[in-house]
Write a protein that binds this DNA or RNA. Structure first.
Lengths: 197, 197
DNA sequence: CTTTTATATTACTCATGAGTATTATCTATC
DNA sequence: GATAGATAATACTCATGAGTAATATAAAAG
């Protein structure tokens, strides 16, 4: 017979955060539909009605997680706007630096990343926004003559997103690469290609 | 009051194929959990028990679709083994040709592609297999001196899969690119990079 | 032309899991 | 120290949708 009523020292916001944390783990591991509220509350040592004190529905808590990922990532990509007038040398380093920041966030928030990037229904829209932002950057540099003029930067930007998406899973989350190495590898690949010269 | 019993001229295999077709559309559009057997049978003009004449469960029909995509794609990638002793010129054309075949299959089987590549739970494993096959190809060419020797072909192969995955959705399925154009664009990007020389 | 087999239907069961009504206890405030 | 508001538990409801039992008819086999 568990204790009824408010427990000694219990503070709502802590239960809420615990629920968010466990929910993120479950959603990331099982996807939306296969995640049960009953499992989340069990893992958070809370009962089901308590869950509904803090979140109006299963969708609501999921959306809160997605929103959190979305807004942080948007900020990071926003910040990755390149300053104009870079030297060619620093261009590579600059892009690498911004990418590293993004990968670092991914690495430190794996559950959220999986949810926002792979599980959420509007993962597609989010990736589109990020691609658009990247494309804007690339176009500027292309106009400045850094890149070949005949390349479609829409394709490049989308490709970059595809690469990030895939390598985050197979290299970053498996521990095969650190954010910095991964960023460096990608930048060199995209800038120079693989062919011998 | 619909007619009971076997209908004039009705042939099981036709109902079965119709169910597969409608199921593919629904799964591709809504995902696994949000697809209802009741919707599939409605769209196929069949009743629910008839569905279970041909498929033992919802999972079974889903897996049949996934398996079909998986095996065709495996074949295509298998065939994309490059012959040894290619000239440098023909290497680019050769890779582009194989990629075009894959994109053509994707374009002609959009529902199946979405299911096998994006919705299925073992989409990740499938992509891993494809990446492994691509990597094998690339390593051979790298040993033959076509590619820069210091590049990690595991990363390149996975990147290629990521690019295919993303561009299939945003370029191929939207009609922005035909298979051949898309393949060409990707090959040039990966081989040469984007930087001005 | 009778029997068997394949194809189909109507009308159900039943498990699951999201969400709730009710009640209890703790803490802060006056 | 009485009261209000916040936090929690027990024990439920209820919709949904996968899967089934029982039955009927067409076509093929003998």
């Amino acid at each position: 017979m568990g204790q009824r009523g408010r427990r000694r020292g219990s503070i709502g916001v802590e239960s809420r955060n615990l629920l968010l944390e466990k929910a993120a783990e479950e959603f990331a591991k099982c996807g939306f539909h296969e995640t049960k509220i009953s499992t989340i509350v069990k893992r958070a040592n809370v009962t089901q009605p308590s869950f509904y004190l803090y979140f109006s529905s299963k969708d609501a808590i999921f959306q809160e997680l997605v929103g959190s990922f979305h807004s942080t990532l948007s900020d990071l990509v926003q910040q990755s706007r390149l300053e104009s007038g870079l030297k060619l040398d620093s261009l590579e380093a600059e892009i690498e630096y911004k990418l590293t920041a993004i990968f670092t966030y991914f690495k430190n928030n794996q559950d959220l990343t999986k949810i926002g990037f792979y599980i959420s229904k509007d993962a597609g829209r989010l990736k589109g926004q990020i691609a658009a932002q990247i494309e804007e950057n690339l176009l500027k540099e292309q106009r400045d003559g850094y890149f070949q003029p005949d390349i479609d930067m829409h394709t490049v930007a989308q490709s970059l997103v595809g690469i990030m998406e895939r390598l985050t899973i197979v290299k970053l989350f498996t521990g095969m690469r650190e954010p910095g190495n991964l960023a460096n590898e990608i930048v060199r690949l995209i800038l120079n290609g693989i062919i011998s010269r």
